[in-house]
Design a protein around this nucleic acid. Structure first.
Lengths: 194, 194
DNA sequence: TTTTTTGTTGATTGACGAGTCAATAAACTT
DNA sequence: AAGTTTATTGACTCGTCAATCAACAAAAAA
């Protein structure tokens, strides 16, 4: 029965299932069996491909980060000028794919993971660094030396909006989140405009 | 040996130990034995007083929330006028007692808990509601109808600054956090001032 | 003084879960 | 055809941990 070349397929399925299960359960207390079952295989096979649960978590993080990165890059490619580029970053951050309970729940738990697992911390720092430099690129032409401070503030605001989504009931309100962030941006830029 | 009236003492010790251990371990994967040991008693006694680990977690949350509430109230009592009252709320939010790794770590994990445990969610909503109304009281005289939106943004920003503290290394920088929040506030208010 | 209430713990139970292993089978190599 | 690599799983090991129990001690009440 064994069709060869299953490894990438199985791994992808496991990564996806990991995110879904973490989002569903709302914590990292997910058993490998649960994940494997959702991915349609035995837990032994999951261990065979990933070695440990922690590796699965890390692969899931990398995946989410990759998706987010791709989304930002895609949006950035179409945007002209600093203001539009900033808008693009925000739109990607709160895109339907990223800003949904399941992903947000996983995100939150990765933050917890980062407290214990160095590699998780590293990954999260990569994300923060990328966000920062994307924001900075747009902000510098508009705000000059204040750009650094603004990027820090905007970054924290974005993370905070994610965090608050966790407690909300009902479907996520992307528009409201984007509006809040844009509002921050505009009022900060007004003071600095010619 | 049994001195009577131990209950409140034991409970307080357990609550404190719970927060310390969660902060230390960085997750909710703390055993009752660890907590009990740090509080200087057997795990059986911990169960005797709290019934379950979940109850311990909730008691710890209530405690943190109570402390935070007291701090805000104290600061508010000394502040005159809307602007100073806003400042007071911010100062309390980032006070040395609240804005330290241990507490921030516990905070983050309570957020995770809120995804599963309704009572935890309720408590966190109480916190959000209080923060909101405190901010609103200061903002309404200064920003009129825009107060609601500002309070939402500022609230998210505060949570986001907490979140980011988790990844930082080195001691927490309260001043920087307050500066970021104040900066947000000022730039938002400038546009609305007479 | 007997009884009840409160404090306290070592030992035990019972469940659950990560990771390993042995075995089976199909494909690919030589 | 024999040997190797890849896929796959059921069964098992070993550890951990929340929660309970039985038992003991001392204070308070009756």
């Amino acid at each position: 029965m064994p069709k060869l070349g299953m490894e990438p397929i199985r791994k992808a399925a496991l990564v996806k299932a990991t995110i879904v299960e973490i989002g569903r359960v709302g914590s990292l207390d997910v058993t490998v069996s649960q994940i494997a079952k959702r991915a349609g295989m035995s837990s032994a096979l999951a261990h065979h491909y990933f070695g440990s649960k922690e590796e699965m978590f890390l692969a899931a993080m990398r995946h989410i980060l990759t998706l987010y990165g791709a989304e930002v890059r895609g949006a950035l490619a179409l945007a002209e000028g600093p203001e539009n580029r900033l808008r693009a970053v925000l739109a990607a951050s709160f895109s339907a794919a990223n800003f949904r309970r399941e992903a947000v729940g996983a995100w939150l738990n990765f933050w917890v993971l980062a407290q214990t697992v160095p590699e998780a911390k590293r990954l999260l720092k990569v994300y923060q660094g990328r966000l920062r430099s994307n924001l900075l690129a747009g902000l510098r032409p508009l705000a000059g030396e204040r750009a650094e401070a603004l990027a820090a503030g905007l970054g924290a605001l974005i993370d905070g909006l994610y965090l608050r989504e966790v407690l909300k009931s009902g479907p996520p309100d992307r528009a409201a989140a984007i509006a809040t962030a844009l509002n921050y941006l505009n009022s900060q830029l007004e003071g600095a405009r010619p």
